[in-house]
């Protein structure tokens, strides 16, 4: 059966992602050197940066899918967008939590309303709002249309989050570049970025499966009613 082959393929991808994250964590914690200025706690970079990347990647995918939906009205684009928001919200919340854990021992505080932190919190709330919009609309087509509009408008904040550290004065440091990180720390960072991207792919495929099943159930019960 087609569905079962796909489920099995997803399981292999899931196992690959799991293995990659295991290697990434071991490398980050036991192989990479500590930082000269921050000491051991700097290792939080290896999870904070990848979760932030996945959050933004996810919202970018939502943005593209929302535009595609409005152009083509294919419910599959809406299903991918919905899946992307849910996963993006999970990873953005995780980014904020990890950032807070990193801030306390280095900056000396858990939280401050600096532009980077504030715009990130707004980003999280906006996409939680997207999920609320979906609960509000009953008719699947209307729901998809409204969601697509929110998915496009919400993306305005994503580049603002990224550029906030260059546009305004912040406590948060500007983005690191390949030159500002020593090579023996850059490689484990790249590995973790790749590993988290695999996790993202796996979660998206599974979340899409769920959206597919939900849509089928919604259609069938609507016919029966």
């Amino acid at each position: 059966m087609e569905r079962e082959t796909r489920d099995r393929r997803h399981r292999w991808l899931g196992l690959a992602a799991l293995a990659a994250v295991v290697v990434g964590t071991v490398w980050a914690l036991f192989v990479a050197p500590p930082d000269a200025a921050q000491g051991e706690v700097q290792r939080l970079m290896y999870v904070h940066v990848p979760t932030a990347w996945i959050g933004m990647l996810s919202f970018f995918v939502v943005f593209v899918m929302s535009i595609l939906y409005l152009v083509q009205r294919d419910p599959r684009w809406d299903m991918i967008a919905h899946s992307g928001v849910e996963i993006g919200v999970v990873f953005t919340a995780l980014t904020l939590a990890l950032g807070s854990l990193w801030a306390k021992p280095t900056w000396g505080i858990w939280w401050t309303w600096d532009p980077r932190l504030t715009t990130t919190a707004i980003m999280l709330i906006i996409y939680v709002g997207y999920l609320a919009v979906r609960g509000f609309a009953q008719d699947p087509e209307k729901r998809a249309r409204w969601s697509a509009v929110v998915g496009i408008v919400a993306f305005v904040d994503v580049p603002i989050v990224y550029l906030s550290v260059t546009w305004w004065r912040t406590l948060h440091q500007p983005p690191s570049t390949a030159r500002s990180i020593a090579p023996e720390m850059l490689w484990p960072l790249f590995l973790n970025l790749a590993a988290f991207t695999l996790v993202y792919l796996y979660l998206m495929l599974r979340r899409y499966r769920l959206a597919e099943a939900e849509r089928q159930l919604e259609e069938e019960t609507a016919i029966g009613r």
Binding site: L29, E40, V41, R43, V47, L94, L98
Partner: peptide, 13 residues
């Protein structure tokens, strides 16, 4: 750093 690292990596996982 240990509690912060444990909390951070643990939470992520």
């Amino acid at each position: 750093s240990l509690p912060y690292l444990a909390a951070g990596f643990g939470l992520t996982w």
